[in-house]
Design a protein around this nucleic acid. Structure first.
Lengths: 152, 152
DNA sequence: CCCCAACGATTGCGTGAGCAAGTAACAGGC
DNA sequence: GCCTGTTACTTGCTCACGCAATCGTTGGGG
């Protein structure tokens, strides 16, 4: 039986709760974004990330940075970017100083679609959180997520 | 520009942080479990869930309940259970009172592997959390996850 | 008793993901 | 100026997932 260490077990419960909450929210948002805008959560997430960089200095990210930001493998990132590029939602162009690097930037169409999808995303998120808050095992985490913005 | 509503944006940031934290932890544990025990996170998660039911009354779960517990589609659950059954880690048997339902139960071999993999899982989790705590954007969430067990 | 709507589980099909191997471009030693 | 090692990205392969259609089972009318 190895009488599992209580501290570790408790930590595992926390991880389990986090995992459950994440998957529930993701599933909920996925359905909403997919049905209304033909976007997956990852695709939306990528557009969102790139658009935030857009406000800043360069307005572009290298594939590697993208992969890190969305926590995907390089190969998956390549294909994700390719898909969105084929839909005209973003553009790819070589980095002038290092021709190995490839920058990606959101296109106007991408920004438009993002603006259109953002309310859907936010509403679905709000909904999923409210729904999760009714589960006593998830409630504390929901609270934590919501209180994150208070410190902004 | 649609001057995004600050409250919603903040919520989205919270969701983004949750998502990042989840994926980092999952990736970390996945590598550890996969290399040392040939188990995916989902497979481990399923064994863990079933074993916890094992302590309780019936010691078994219907496919539907399993699917709900691990947040998977019914089809994915069927295949996940099939894979683990083929490895001899769990057993399937018909529910005697309703032959539509199928119960799943962890086998002794499954329990053994679980006992073997648990330390790996816990260590990787601990590691991933410590690593994430160094990211200021993730730190508050990490704290929340860790404090969950304090209320047990 | 038979029929039919509902339910649980499985299967066919298409898609996205990671790993490993491959290619192109930089950086340093000699 | 090559040759070697490293970096950034892409491609081949395999596999797990979700959706939709299907099969077997159950339960409630008629």
């Amino acid at each position: 039986m190895t009488a599992t260490d209580p501290a570790l077990t408790a930590l595992a419960q926390g991880w389990r709760a986090l995992s459950l909450l994440h998957e529930k929210i993701e599933a909920h948002i996925e359905r909403a974004l997919q049905s209304k805008h033909g976007l997956s959560v990852r695709e939306y997430s990528l557009l969102e990330t790139l658009s935030r960089q857009h406000d800043g200095p360069g307005g572009h990210l290298q594939m590697k940075q993208v992969a890190d930001a969305v926590v995907l493998s390089q190969s998956a990132t390549t294909r994700l970017v390719t898909r969105l590029e084929e839909r005209g939602l973003l553009t790819r162009y070589l980095c002038p100083t290092d021709r190995r690097g490839i920058y990606t930037d959101v296109s106007p169409a991408g920004l438009a679609l993002l603006a259109e999808a953002r309310p859907t995303n936010d509403a679905a998120l709000r909904e999923a959180l409210d729904q999760a808050a009714r589960d006593p095992q998830l409630a504390p985490l929901v609270e934590a997520v919501e209180s994150l913005h208070a410190r902004a």
